[in-house]
Design a protein around this nucleic acid. Sequence first.
RNA 1: GUGGAUGUAGCUCAGCUGGUAGAGCCCCGGAUUGUGACUCCGGUGGUCGCAGGUUCAAAACCUGUCAUCCACCCCA
Length: 449
Amino acid sequence: MSKLIQPPKGTRDFLPEEMILRRKVMETIRECFALYGFVEIDSPVFEYFELLSRKCGSEIEKEIYVFEDKAKRKLGLRFEFTSPLGRYYATNSEKLTKPFKRYIIGKVYRYENTQAGRYREFYQADADIVGSYSVNVENELLDLAVFTLERLGMGNYEIVINNRKILDGIINAAGIDESKKDAALRALDKTAKIGEAGVIKEFKENGIGEENYRSFMRLIDLNAESEDSKKLTALKERICADLKDESIKNKANEGIEELSAIIGNERKAETREGSGVIKFDPLLVRGLGYYTGPIFEIKSKDVAIGSFAAGGRYDNLVELYGARPEGACGISFGVERIIDIITERDKDILKSFSSPVKVYIIYLSENEKIFALKTAKFFRLKGIAVELSVSSEHNIGKEIKYADKKGIEYFAVIGEREAAEQKLTLKNLKTRKEMAVSAEEAAEAIKRN
RNA sequence: GUGGAUGUAGCUCAGCUGGUAGAGCCCCGGAUUGUGACUCCGGUGGUCGCAGGUUCAAAACCUGUCAUCCACCCCA
């Protein structure tokens, strides 16, 4: 295919049949968000570059699409919804009722190399609550996540949680310098991928000793068989023993309390159906620079595509944009990945959707045209989607093929005979049966089906 | 940004050690002028991703480039 008729790298065209699934997924997410009391907002696709790049971390900053407008303003396309939310909240703070629960579904942009499940233009669906420091927010968001994923039919997945406050505590207890924290966390996050030796190597490259790694791992070496609540208790005892700095110790304990509350809530709530299980993972880090408390990621166990939803607490981020400091926490669903997982799990799903058009109407000569137009309008007023033939050939054979190919179930013919009796020949293309009925009767038959 | 694989018709792919392209499906027309899924007949469609180079001759070999996929990096 020549370059000019290909969509730009990392972007895609969607066929009508693909759009049915995409719309369904997004509508389901929208409904679930609304059922949990979130209200929809919108904000610009581009913002000032400086605003987007604030506190997002250098890796992400490289991925921002930057451009200048004609007045030389430096702008960037949003790469997620959290910093735009900070700006939005600061701008509209006085008009918003707090805690502010909002959702947004829209396109975001990242200049990065493409791969399966990784695009340069993609949809995210974001639910956030600004204005509360309570761990109830995390519980509500995770409950919302499970509810939504069940409705979407996501199969088996796993929710992994950790807490930045705990990580900070362990880092400190392991004797890792504050300035090297980020490098250490990044390496530790990769443990499952690169193994112990790999992490130690990265530690050394960043001037962190192997003994620091060993003590970090000793601290989180928890009985794999025990329940998460017991792991957290054990971790708490160790941190209390090892941490000398009171404020760091308090923070870490706070983090442990928060996770205990989240896990305790999960065990009490009966909304969890078992396919989605919350698991504590002390090695979960998450890249974005603004997280301050609990963090979480959701991964499919059926399809290897990375995490398809993630989020966490980012207290006081809104302060960066000039609002009063507020607690805030949010979750983001990767719509493309969710769709990829659904289609991977059910490869024929696109074929299973029936056409939104219920009846295809043709007339056989110009004499019946007005009657056909009136009939079409009649159906439409009844809420039945109709496609009226635009062909001037009036060839029944061709038209049936067309309607059948488009998956339209009913085919209505209006010819001389029908017009004379003010009726139509209604044919069910699946059962191949046809009958002569009035428009009224036809509408009833279609609605009944 | 780094490394690897791939790129031939709308789709899935074949094309040998270089001799200027083929199948199946799809699409279109007809057999069948008020009735589609099967069948039969016929037909459209490709500067072989793009640009250079080597050669009498390149889809094939070389270089560059673009895109897709995979692995890093990072992430939804």
